[in-house]
Computed example of a mutant assay.
Amino acid sequence: MNYQVNASSLFNEDAVIHIKASDIAFGTTSKTADILPNPAELFLGSFAACMLKNVERFSAMMKFDYTKTTLHLSATRLEHPPRMDNINYELTIYTNDKKLNVDLLKKNIEKHGTIYNTIKLACSISGSIKTQNDV
């Protein structure tokens, strides 16, 4: 598989990533630092997207139902050289389905996630998956 992404920016303005029919604005200036995602947050967003896509993918393969998922990520950034050092996640799956094998889902996400596997080559990843009953 091959991927293509385009991005553009203007001097002293913020930037935009152009992916398919989506435009994703991100901050490159101090004036929008509090309202637009920065490159580190987009990086973590890609990790989150990978995990959530795989929950959807494996729900069909593992034959479990859920209504929604939430994912909380935190990361540590080192200064010298500037890089992510540790990513921690907590994935919650809202379901009443007793067939969900959380340990197998976690194993599948860690084994088959493209972004997950790319990132784990550069920094440590730890986390947990829990379920919460639907109301």
Rank of each mutant, 00 (worst) to 15 (best):
H80Q: 14
L105C: 07
H112G: 01
S126G: 05
C50T: 05
T32E: 11
N12T: 07
G27Y: 08
N133V: 09
M51I: 13
N86S: 11
E110T: 01
Y89S: 13
T32V: 04
Q132G: 01
K107I: 02
N12W: 03
T28Q: 15
D85E: 13
F47E: 03
F26G: 10
Y94S: 08
P37Q: 03
A25I: 05
P37T: 04
N6Q: 15
N108F: 08
T32G: 01
E110Q: 09
D97K: 08
I17C: 13
K111Y: 06
K130N: 10
K111E: 10
D97T: 05
K53C: 10
L78D: 04
F26N: 08
P39A: 09
L44K: 04
S22R: 04
P39N: 11
P81V: 13
S9E: 02
F43S: 07
S124E: 14
T69H: 02
L78T: 01
S9W: 12
K120T: 12
E13K: 15
L91F: 01
Y94H: 11
L91T: 02
E56C: 09
R83V: 02
H80R: 13
N133C: 07
T67M: 12
K98Q: 12
S8P: 04
V102G: 01
P37D: 05
E110F: 05
N108D: 05
M1C: 12
A122N: 12
T118M: 13
D34Q: 13
F43C: 02
